[in-house]
Design a protein around this nucleic acid. Structure first.
Length: 584
DNA sequence: GCCGTTTTCGGCCCGACTGTTTTCAGTCG
């Protein structure tokens, strides 16, 4: 059993214990253990076998027993019992913003509500508001939240879908008779959330398609077969275990080798891009479909996708751009941008260490950054008022600076940069005074509190923060959590204009739960001339790798290498930050 | 449930906010 899987089961126990009304410190111990295990480099299953669980902090007698059982049997008595007495609907209810385990429990015990549908009925008939501790406003909020939950459950995040899709593609690729297998659909376009997984595979002999489709339906992780025909199979694939498991639809389409470029193109979409391509083909006297590009003089043979675009008189359009938002015309006019690439990222700014709420030390983060080939690494721990995240006091900031200076003596080709993720307070002032801010190499300013301010207030607050001369960039500009929390109300256009006016960078937070700024506004920022920067917001060394998700957002936003601050090399970033400091 | 010690119970990062109350519970980060 993988550590992640084990952690997921422990988290499930925690959630179920909370719903059962058990002591929060008790349930919290399971969640803490889950987090520890998630960030542990070596296998806990291996430790169980070797009898060395004692080396894992946070595991006492009970949790060691639980972990051993989970590793050995995939479940444990406690989990089985909890699952049996907890209707799955209660877990869904937890996804409603502002609803936690206590409220769910109260509604379950008092009103026998155990599904979203019953909850909706109870809200509409006013029963929820009558409960002790509830009221009209709570009831209205729950109704609002229900709509969101119902909507969001249809999609999963890119990273979650990738975790399911990549093993499936690899497995199909390894099947006998398969020549190519590629991800298609919105996953290939790297949309931030997706509805399903599309895979296109080719076989030299289409007679073999049936056996490949058959094998696909029997792959590990496939839970249910929805449909299976001669060229296509549709299944439900599962990620994770138990009540917290994620389910997503996955389609495999098998075509002949000859049809591959057309099929891949067709199934990559978007639908709107395809329509534009077909119109283009029509205008040139062709007919484009998933099997070929037919003209009066027969089929036009294309060996790959770039050849297909060329045959249509277009420059190659990268999958990330295929949203019919001007890319076809740009491809005709040879005006598509050269997109930024993950290999061009030299460093990232916004990361946390154990000093605030991260899991790894400065040195561990630096080592991980160097392993990724980065030339510099920015550390931006939280500021003092964010006590929940163990924000740094000015004294602790200075301690960290000394430690960074000490570490930086180790390398000649790599630097840790002194940064801070400073809270933008409710009135737009910053959580550290200018005196201290002046001592950082750079400052990320972010909103973490007072999410419910009116739009004008929030906009003014952020704009005011951007006016501070010591601020280098704006962190996660909208605060959204994909499928979980809407962005706070803010006039992004005004924020981007302010960023332009004051020469501030805007972050594409690369945490796959955020992807904030989104790609749409990236394009807008690019038009305005606002420089962007992507940061993994890593709270652990292995999260530095999330930078790829930010780069993909940038690509979807038509961002060129020079427009992303991460492409600056070590001398470049030092010079840039120095120039900015001198302007203050 | 874990941990540390003031060695076997009591504390567990906790402050702000909201909506509910009339002094506080629940949620969030």
């Amino acid at each position: 059993m993988e550590n992640a899987q084990l952690a997921s089961l422990l988290n499930e126990i925690c959630t179920l214990m909370e719903l059962a009304g058990e002591d929060s410190f008790r349930s919290g111990a399971f969640a803490r253990a889950a987090r520890t295990i998630e960030t542990l480099p070596d296998s806990v299953a291996g430790k169980v076998e070797a009898g060395s669980l004692d080396s894992v902090p946070g595991l006492g007698k009970t949790l060691k027993d639980t972990v051993s059982q989970l590793v050995q049997t995939g479940t444990c008595k406690q989990l089985d019992d909890l699952r049996e007495k907890t209707p799955p609907g209660l877990i869904l209810m937890l996804r409603i913003p502002g609803v936690g385990p206590k409220k769910v429990r109260a509604m379950h015990l008092e009103l026998a509500i155990d599904t979203l549908a019953k909850l909706k009925d109870a809200c509409e008939s006013g029963k929820v508001a009558a409960l002790k501790g509830f009221g009209d406003k709570t009831q209205a909020k729950i109704l609002e939240g229900l709509a969101f939950v119902e909507l969001s459950s249809e999609r999963v995040r890119l990273d979650q879908a990738m975790a399911v899709a990549e093993p499936l593609v690899a497995a199909v690729r390894a099947m006998k008779g398969v020549e190519h297998a590629e991800l298609a659909g919105s996953l290939r376009r790297r949309r931030e959330t997706v509805k399903d997984i599309d895979i296109v595979a080719t076989v030299a002999d289409t007679q073999k398609a049936t056996s490949i489709l058959e094998a696909f339906t029997k792959l590990k992780g496939v839970e249910r077969v929805v449909g299976q025909g001669d060229t296509k199979a549709s299944v439900v694939a599962r990620l994770g275990e138990g009540t917290r498991a994620l389910r997503i639809n996955a389609d495999l389409r098998v075509v002949s080798t000859q049809a591959f470029p057309y099929a891949l193109n067709y199934f990559t979409g978007s639908k709107e891009h395809n329509v534009a391509l077909r119109q283009r083909a029509q205008a040139l006297g062709f007919k484009l479909n998933e099997y070929g590009l037919e003209g009066d003089a027969g089929n036009k043979r294309c060996s790959d996708e770039p050849a297909l675009y060329k045959a249509l008189g277009l420059d190659y359009v990268q999958p990330e751009l295929r949203e019919n938002t001007g890319e076809v015309q740009a491809a005709i006019d040879h005006k598509l941008p050269e997109l930024v690439n993950i290999d061009q990222v030299m460093g990232v700014f916004h990361n946390h260490t154990v000093a605030s709420d991260g899991a790894n030390t400065l040195e561990e983060m630096a080592d991980a950054a160097r392993a990724l080939g980065y030339k510099w690494l920015g550390i931006g721990d939280h500021s003092q008022s964010l006590t929940i995240a163990n924000g740094l006091s000015p004294e602790r900031v200075r301690d960290q600076w000394r430690e960074i200076d000490r570490l930086n003596k180790k390398w000649h080709d790599f630097r840790i940069l002194k940064g801070s993720e400073v809270d933008i307070l409710a009135d737009g002032s910053l959580d550290f005074d200018d005196n201290l801010l002046a001592g950082f190499d750079y400052v990320v300013a972010s909103v973490h509190t007072h999410f419910n301010q009116p739009r004008e207030e929030m906009t003014a607050r952020i704009v005011k923060a951007l006016e501070n001369p010591f601020v280098t960039m704006l962190g996660h500009p909208t605060g959204r959590l994909l499928l979980r929390r809407e962005a706070y109300a803010v006039d992004l256009e005004a924020v981007l204009q302010a960023a332009k006016k004051h020469d501030k960078w805007v972050e594409i937070n690369a945490n796959p739960m955020r992807l904030d700024l989104d790609w749409v506004h990236c394009r807008r920022a690019r038009e305005i001339g606002v420089k962007l920067v992507t940061n993994p917001d890593a709270h652990a060394a292995d999260e530095l790798a999330n930078t790829i998700y930010g780069v993909e957002v940038a690509r979807r936003g038509w961002v060129r290498p020079a427009q992303l601050a991460n492409t600056l090399d070590l001398n470049g970033v030092l010079a840039e930050l120095e120039t900015r400091r001198k302007k203050v």
